[in-house]
Computed example of a mutant assay.
Amino acid sequence: MRHIVIGAGAVGGSIAGRLAETGQDVVLVARGAHYEALRTHGLRLTTPDGTRVHRLPVVEGPETLVLRPDDVLLLSVKTQDSAAALDTWSGRPVEGGGTAGELLPLVCAQNGVENERLALRRFRHVYGMCVWLPSSHVDPGEVVAPCAPYTGMLHLGRYPSGIDATARRISASLEKGTLLAPLVPDVMRWKYTKLLANLSNSLGALTGPLDTDEARLIQRRAYDEGRAVLSAAGIDSVSPEKAAEVRGDHLGLDPHLASGRDGSSSWQSLSRGTGSIETDHLNGEIVLLGRLHAVPTPVNETLARVANTFAREHRRPGSMSVAELAALIEAASGAAAE
């Protein structure tokens, strides 16, 4: 089995590095300065057990790569980039006949719940992955994954549901190293739980660490809106208590590696000045469902709107005060009540 990691950033780079450490066949897919750094210097992965440089094949796209029937595509781009990546890869020929979309398994190792739907339009064999893997990618060629004894927990299942032989093979491949990949027949229940946890990504990206009562109140209100929306939509999720119990002490955070970086994907997008942020598929997912089911979501709507503004204007992460954000939320709450 060869693992083609499409989007070798924080999550993709961490998984790729850990796979490579167990001698598995890995190809990285990256763009721009990150691609150049990976091609020239290799993937520099820092974990609690040290820093390793992995010299792995790296490509910018499928044009220079011959796809094989034993390939697994691991999609780890942000959701706003998924459609373009899926279109790029789905029609590519596979050695021996057929296309990637017809033959190859595609795993959505991403936050949010939209990627699998996008993928299933283009790929016949789609797998969801609920990613609990705190990591950061700010500098080209470098990834920091601060958890031990395991780097991440990656619940895996076929989309929309089920477990099959391919899922078992992928799970076994991941678990050869310091990754946990539990197989679950209801992977989207786990991903909706992660979605609720990710609603504070934008808050931390806008205002910095959530270490004040006012910030934690906004975090709680965003989460409560999310729970209310999922309930109204009839969408089931794993309880946070159950999720925490399953993770247990497998993902202990090394404070030295984690210090100085928010760690969330939204913070990293603003730090790198990419001009886009995935908040439309996190907070925005709650806003969408709220509008469909007549549930007001002023906190998530404000977080999505302001985070998008930060991304477009290339504003620094953490540069808005909690009080300023709270005032915007109260204004939105008042408008929603009218």
Rank of each mutant, 00 (worst) to 15 (best):
H125Y: 13
V131R: 03
L73T: 11
P105C: 06
F123G: 01
L74C: 03
L103E: 12
G61D: 15
A85N: 08
R92Y: 06
T46G: 05
A100Q: 09
G91P: 05
P62V: 05
P62M: 09
L106Q: 03
R124I: 05
L86V: 05
P105K: 11
R92P: 00
L86K: 02
S76Y: 04
L104K: 05
G96C: 06
R92M: 13
D81G: 00
L56R: 08
R121Y: 00
G50M: 10
L120N: 10
F123M: 06
A109E: 02
E102H: 09
S82C: 14
L56Y: 08
V107W: 00
C130A: 15
G61N: 15
T46V: 08
T46L: 10
E114A: 15
G50Q: 07
L86F: 13
A84V: 13
E63P: 00
L74F: 14
E114N: 11
A85E: 05
W132K: 10
H54R: 08
V58W: 01
G91V: 10
V94N: 05
V107C: 00
R55E: 13
E63A: 15
E63F: 02
L86N: 04
A85C: 12
P69Q: 09
L75V: 05
V58E: 04
T46R: 13
L75H: 01
V131H: 02
V131W: 01
D87Q: 12
L56P: 03
D71V: 06
T47I: 06
T40Q: 14
G97R: 06
E95W: 10
L65Y: 13
D87E: 14
D81K: 11
A83N: 08
A100E: 06
R52G: 14
A100V: 11
G101R: 01
G98W: 04
G96P: 03
T88N: 09
M129H: 03
L65E: 04
K78E: 07
P48G: 06
P57W: 04
L133P: 00
G61Q: 04
T40A: 15
E114R: 14
P57A: 11
G97C: 04
D70W: 12
P69D: 07
L67I: 07
A84G: 03
P93S: 09
T88L: 14
N111E: 06
K78I: 07
P69R: 14
G98T: 09
N115E: 03
D81W: 06
A100L: 08
R68P: 01
R68C: 06
T46S: 14
D71P: 02
P93W: 01
L103A: 13
G91A: 11
H125R: 15
G61R: 01
A109P: 01
